[in-house]
Nucleic acid binder design. Structure first.
Length: 909
RNA sequence: GGGCGAUUAGCUCAGUUGGUUAGAGCACCAGCUCGACAAGCUGGGGGUCAUAGGUUCGAGUCCUAUAUCGCCCACCA
């Protein structure tokens, strides 16, 4: 929304400026009256009444075309051709041996009308030495070809030291003695001051000081207690301070000042040079630094409770490291400038009235606690009120004139937690929902927004506004830059929703929400004609239309505005990042189709009565164990704001465990009437649980599936559902799963892992021997008696999943005469390929495999031979290493035997 | 100038209190349309964990320095 608003604003203002229009803010400004306006006025009045609102001065970036201050991020710098004017200021009553004038150089000669001092460095010799030392250091570190340039600079400094230093020393002494110079053209006497801002290594070593129109000069002015003269009117003409130049525009004034200096003989030199000039992003007009009266909120008292809330842990910031920047920033207790010169916003509820006494005010507003006032220290009064209609009143015949400024957008935002609940009225919502639970936001507004919400929440209600603050990562573009309105590198989420779905978007975003990392998201434009992906680059990302490099047809982008562009088909900005989410939705949908298809003819009821877990088949015990541990991990991930972990855990469980393993196993069971019912129940249990766990990050597809399940299996109950009430109408209000911890069994998961490894080993042999998928093979598994015993019940499953007949399973199982081998989880797997086997390929693979095993074995032996490892490492670690060593030795000997076997077989051929 | 963070596969990212052979998705290679799913299935290749030191039996993980990048703040940290 922000980006769009900016685009419109820029376009409109740019066109106005091109037409030579001027801007009258009093007519364009309007006040915002939303449900928060009352809260804003009330909160401001309370601050005013407590003496926490003050009037003060501030140097702002002034846009003379818009007649408004712009914030730092609305400023861009551009090199322009300009001049450097060297101007002579005469010294008043020079003593013998003193110079009669000083020379300063400026790119903005008209600002001399606002000069209130000329500065020289207090100790020029030291400053020159420091500069020379810095250059020598730089020379030592610099590459050879840069050195001549640095040498020249060092020589220049030496020359300055010789020729200019005595002069500068004299000036520094004069500054300390309180001498003055005469301001050209206006004739005012201004002091010569000593300040480090004047650089002896640059120019004449002297610098003019215009505190009201230059940030550095403003600092000097504050340090030296200089007067600050604003010589500009808001629209960029000179004001009465400029004397004879009053009423001229800056440009005209500059021409006239230069001409007059020339006439007066005070212009010594004019240099051409390129100048880095700040421009307003909104109007493209050069920025004028401008000293303006602003409203401030005093922070000294207000900040402390907000500081304490985080320091004492009543507000928890996640990730924790951000608490530091919050505390550091608040502890400065810097006053908050709240007035803004914008064309929309909440208008400051302060009116000004002059020519009345305090008694008049007291009489006019007698008995009204909605009005407060304070002297403006110039004979008038500032009146603050929570009543919007105050401006229609008058005091002793004098009008109340409202302050033209609006409040900083963060002022109303600071009230958000309580104003949206109805404050200042004591509503039921406020009572029920305040303080809120968690605030989720981006780290760059931690101070701007979060800290101020805490401050204002505590000030207005006496309570902190929330207990936890979650700072989420930011998405960057392919170059690692923050997506921003001015760069135009944003992605419209609606494009993603249109092409891949809202769940794909949300799932992918959750997957990106890791604790530390900001995420790069390369984006492409998708050609609507041919589907070709056009990489979004710095060049094309701000264009309203792009010609597809493949099919040549043009399409429009999100920036299209002209009628001709708007007629083109839209080329959405897409990213493959979201495809995994779309594919996952699809996978869930298809798995559901399988379950529904196999539920036909059954009417599932409560699933609680499944009997002793230990009496269930291995795969069912395994599913329950996985279900319980995944649920536990997912629940914890949500509580800890670890959304990426949540997404990964559920993706892996649903796809690999539920679909690839369990669902495949069920195909055989569903075909047998004796096992069908239990398989149906277990499939439902798994799917239902997955839906509930996924719902927070994939709300739409899970709800849709839930509704379908309602039709087919509305009578089902999970063990954690209330058996006496009907199943939840919507997934949104269904109970979060709470499987018993007792379901979790590590031994079961390990055993099931062995089974999967055996299946995988047979499949691997098939793949590398290019056995067609439907061709049945004969396999044998040599395993310890213990392993064989637990694999025996899975025999049918192995056979169906690996498309194999298991000829032998046990410690004595032997390799068929012509076999390919593989090892899996301590078992040896043989596949009889009778004549089909590619012996040469098998030998090559075994050689490679054995070599790899030997490598590990050598490393392992060395480790265990290392005296310091064996004596210092924990017992468990050493035992583990020994077990691995034994396993590797076993694997190698089997590998070598298989190799010998194959070589013998190959020899006769 | 101050502070915070990052650097791991071609790309985008995980990696728990230091302990098996560092993982995922996409991309890549080979083979597959079997009644859930080609947006899929099965298998595979691919990494000196930015660089240099240090601590440790053991470092992607801890410490120091360097380089590069990002962000916030800047008269006051």
């Amino acid at each position: 929304i922000w980006a769009w608003k900016e685009q419109y604003e820029k376009r409109i203002l740019g066109q106005l400026r091109d037409l030579g229009a001027s801007c009258d803010w009093d007519r364009t400004r309007f006040t915002l009256d939303d449900r928060c306006a009352t809260a804003v006025r009330e909160a401001f009045l309370r601050l005013f009444q407590k003496g926490l609102v003050r009037r003060g001065k501030r140097l702002v970036n002034w846009d003379t075309f818009l007649q408004t201050a712009v914030s730092d991020d609305e400023v861009f710098h551009e090199q322009v051709k300009g001049h450097f004017w060297h101007i002579r200021y005469e010294v008043i009553d020079p003593q013998p041996g003193e110079p009669t004038s000083v020379t300063v150089a400026t790119t903005r000669p008209e600002t001399l009308l606002g000069d209130t001092a000329v500065a020289v460095h207090p100790s020029p010799a030291l400053a020159l030495d420091a500069a020379a030392a810095a250059l020598r250091e730089k020379r030592a570190a610099a590459a050879a070809k840069e050195q001549p340039e640095i040498d020249a600079a060092i020589d220049d400094l030496a020359a300055r030291r010789r020729d200019l230093l005595p002069h500068l020393e004299t000036l520094a002494a004069m500054a300390k003695a309180g001498r003055h110079v005469r301001l050209p053209l206006l004739g005012r006497a201004i002091p010569l001051v000593a300040d480090e801002w004047a650089k002896p290594e640059m120019g004449s070593g002297c610098v003019k000081i215009t505190p009201a129109h230059d940030p550095n000069d403003y600092d000097v002015g504050r340090r030296r207690g200089l007067p600050m003269l604003n010589i500009l009117n808001p629209e960029g003409t000179l004001n009465a301070e400029a004397g004879p130049y009053q009423g001229l525009t800056i440009r005209k004034a500059r021409e006239k000042v230069v001409a007059d200096l020339e006439t007066a003989g005070q212009l010594q030199q004019v240099e051409d040079r390129l100048i880095e000039l700040a421009h307003s992003d909104r109007s493209k007009t050069p920025i004028e630094p401008y000293l303006a009266d602003q409203w401030f909120i005093r922070m000294d008292e207000l900040a402390q409770p907000a500081l304490d809330a985080v320091a004492q842990g009543r507000i928890r910031i996640v990730p924790e490291r951000y608490a530091k920047s919050y505390l550091d920033w608040l502890s400065e207790k810097r006053d908050w400038p709240v007035s803004r010169q914008l064309w929309w916003g909440h208008r400051i509820p302060i009116w000004h009235v002059a020519g009345v006494s305090e008694a008049d005010l007291a009489k006019s507003f007698a008995g009204r606690d909605t009005v407060a006032w304070r002297s403006d220290e110039a004979g008038g009064w500032f009146v603050c009120s929570s009543e919007e209609s105050l401006g229609t009143e008058s005091v002793a015949g004098q009008p109340l004139v409202r302050d033209p400024d609006v409040l900083d957008t963060w002022f109303s935002s600071a009230l958000w937690p309580h104003s949206t609940l109805g404050w200042p009225a004591a509503t039921a919502e406020l009572e029920t929902f305040y303080p809120t639970a968690a605030l989720v936001t981006s780290r760059d507004i931690l101070t701007l927004w979060v800290a101020r919400m805490v401050i204002m929440g505590v000030f207005d209600t006496g309570e902190i506004p929330f207990h936890e603050v979650y700072i989420h990562p930011k998405i960057l573009d392919r170059y690692g830059e923050t997506m921003s309105k001015s760069k135009g590198n944003g992605v419209d989420p609606v494009d993603v929703i249109d092409s891949l779905g809202a769940d794909a978007l949300r799932f992918a975003l959750a997957g990106m929400a890791t604790e530390t990392q900001d995420v790069r998201m390369p984006v492409d434009f998708q050609c609507p004609a041919c589907g070709h992906l056009v990489e979004q680059t710095v060049q094309n990302r701000v264009k309203p239309r792009i010609d597809c490099p493949k099919c040549g047809k043009p399409f429009r982008t999100q920036w299209a505005n002209a009628a001709a562009d708007l007629d083109l088909p839209r080329g959405p900005a897409v990213s493959e990042k979201f495809e995994a989410g779309r594919n996952f939705s699809n996978k869930l949908w298809n798995a559901t189709r399988f379950v529904l298809m196999n539920l036909e003819g059954s009417t599932p009821g409560p699933l609680a009565a499944m009997g002793e877990v230990s009496s269930l088949p291995l795969e069912d015990q395994w599913l329950l164990s996985r279900l319980a541990s995944v649920t536990r991990n997912a629940t914890r991930a949500i509580a800890d704001y670890k959304f990426a972990e949540l997404a990964r855990e559920l993706y892996a469980f649903a796809w690999d465990d539920y679909c690839s393993a369990y669902l495949e196993l069920c195909k055989a069971r569903l075909a047998e009437p004796a096992h069908r019912e239990r398989a149906q129940a277990m499939l439902l249990l798994g799917l239902d649980t997955i839906l509930r766990l996924l719902h927070p990050i994939m709300p739409f597809v899970t709800e849709e599936i839930w509704q379908h399940l309602h039709a087919a299996a509305g009578g089902r109950r999970m063990p954690w559902d209330d058996p006496s009430s009907p199943l939840a109408e919507s997934l949104m209000v269904a109970r979060w799963p709470v499987p018993p911890e007792a379901w979790i069994d590590q031994a079961t998961e390990t055993r099931f892992g062995t089974f999967l490894a055996v299946v995988s080993a047979i499949r691997e042999i098939r793949a590398r021997q290019n056995v067609p998928p439907k061709t049945r093979v004969t396999a044998a598994v040599r395993a310890s008696a213990e392993t064989a015993a637990l694999l025996e019940p899975m025999r049918a499953a192995i056979e169906s999943m690996a498309v194999a007949d298991l000829a032998a399973l046990g410690p004595t199982a032997s390799a068929p005469p012509s076999a390919a081998t593989a090892s899996a989880a301590g078992c040896e797997v043989f596949v009889d390929l009778a004549g089909l086997v590619d012996v040469a390929a098998e030998i090559a693979r075994l050689l490679k495999e054995n070599e790899k095993t030997e490598g590990f074995l050598t490393a392992k032996r060395q480790k265990l031979a290392n005296e310091s490892f064996v004596s210092r490492a924990p017992e468990a670690v050493i035992a583990k290493e020994r077990a691995q060593l034994a396993e590797l030795e076993d694997k190698l000997s089997k590998g070598r035997a298989a190799l010998d076997d194959l070589r013998r077989r190959q020899a006769p051929a």
